[in-house]
Simulated scan of single mutants.
Amino acid sequence: MTHYFLAEPPASPAKTGVLLINLGTPAAPTAAAVKPYLREFLSDQRVVELPRWLWQTVLRGIILPFRSGKSAHGYQKIWQSEGSPLYVYTERSALALEQHLRKAMADAPLVAFAMTYGAPSVADTIARLKQQGVSRLLVLPLYPQYAASAGGAALDKVWQVLLQQRNQMSVRSISRYYDHPGYIQALAGKIEQHWQQHGRGDKLMLSFHGIPQAQHNAGDPYPQECRQTAVLLAQQLKLAESDYIVAFQSQFGKAKWIGPSTQDLLVSLPKNGVKKLDVVCPGFAADCLETLEEIALQGREDFYAAGGTQYQYIPCLNDDSAWIEALAALVQTHLHGWG
């Protein structure tokens, strides 16, 4: 089989780049825009580990025709004037990070962002960076805890680009930062600020995105890293074990997922005396459909319907200054001695 490599731009003085990668988002909150996004996302075998022929039949024949409209309705509830929250906050974070690094470093790197699925694509963004003279690239998927279906899928896109390069870039990657002190401190500061402004509930729920139990059984370290983040965060906030609970959201399909389930807890906690609940999603660097619609809106409805009296969603780090400082420290550590 003949392999054709991409044409390369002329050689130029070597520059360093930083690439932030997030999951992705449809271009508009419509079924027509959501469908191709979901098709790309759910076709990735990092996300759904089933035989391709079987899963594609189910995906195209059953899931996409029904889920596209439902997801579009969810996006309509959270869509901002500037666009998708995930896109908006990821773009702001990249711009803020580059500005911060310019002040902190004499030879600051270029900073760009891409999405694993949708636009801007990883391939297009790396091509643009290469046109700007970047030959050393630090890749940072914006997932604090590593999961093959998230951070692994993002890094796959980078390696696929390298396979097409005639003159390959030098690449470093940060696959996880679940225990980074700056990340933990930024999270704790966000929660403390919210409590100072709005008061504190009976319990703090740390809701992480879930993965199928089979993926964990096969060696995915994600649940342990989530729980370690929770322990470090609790220590930073000086919380007792009874003050918080770890849960996993966004279960999909009939397979067994890691637990406990966020949705199940939102129904059972009020019945067990927890009437006031604060919820934060430490596994998401930026607010998105899973945090703003699933947790902030639908979660509130479920909790109140089960007898809860106060429900407070604490936003993600987004482009908060403390988070940008932590992100800059993480990047500088991994760039040390390069170039």
Rank of each mutant, 00 (worst) to 15 (best):
Q76T: 13
K77H: 13
I78Y: 01
Q80M: 15
Q80D: 06
E82K: 07
G83E: 06
G83H: 10
G83L: 11
L86Y: 12
L86H: 10
Y87E: 10
Y87M: 10
Y89V: 01
T90Q: 14
T90H: 13
E91A: 14
E91I: 00
R92Q: 14
R92A: 12
A94D: 07
A94I: 08
L97H: 14
L97M: 11
L97Q: 13
E98F: 07
E98W: 12
E98H: 07
E98A: 06
E98I: 03
Q99F: 00
H100S: 08
L101M: 12
L101Q: 07
R102M: 10
K103M: 09
K103P: 00
A104D: 12
A104S: 15
A104T: 14
A106F: 00
P109S: 05
P109T: 07
L110N: 02
L110K: 15
L110Y: 08
L110R: 15
V111C: 11
F113L: 13
A114R: 05
M115G: 03
T116S: 02
T116P: 03
Y117A: 11
Y117W: 15
Y117F: 15
Y117K: 15
Y117S: 13
Y117L: 13
Y117D: 14
Y117V: 14
G118R: 14
A119C: 07
S121Y: 09
S121D: 05
V122H: 03
A123V: 10
D124S: 14
I126H: 03
I126W: 01
A127F: 05
A127L: 08
A127Y: 07
R128K: 15
R128L: 12
R128D: 12
Q131H: 13
Q131K: 15
Q132Y: 05
V134W: 09
V134I: 12
V134T: 09
V134P: 07
R136Y: 12
R136V: 08
R136L: 04
L137E: 09
L137K: 09
L138C: 10
L138F: 10
V139G: 03
V139I: 06
L140A: 04
P141K: 04
L142I: 10
Y143I: 04
Y143T: 02
P144R: 12
P144S: 11
Q145K: 04
Q145A: 07
Q145L: 05
Y146L: 06
Y146N: 04
A147G: 07
A147S: 13
A147H: 04
S149V: 02
S149N: 04
A150S: 09
G152K: 04
G152M: 01
A154M: 04
L155G: 02
L155W: 01
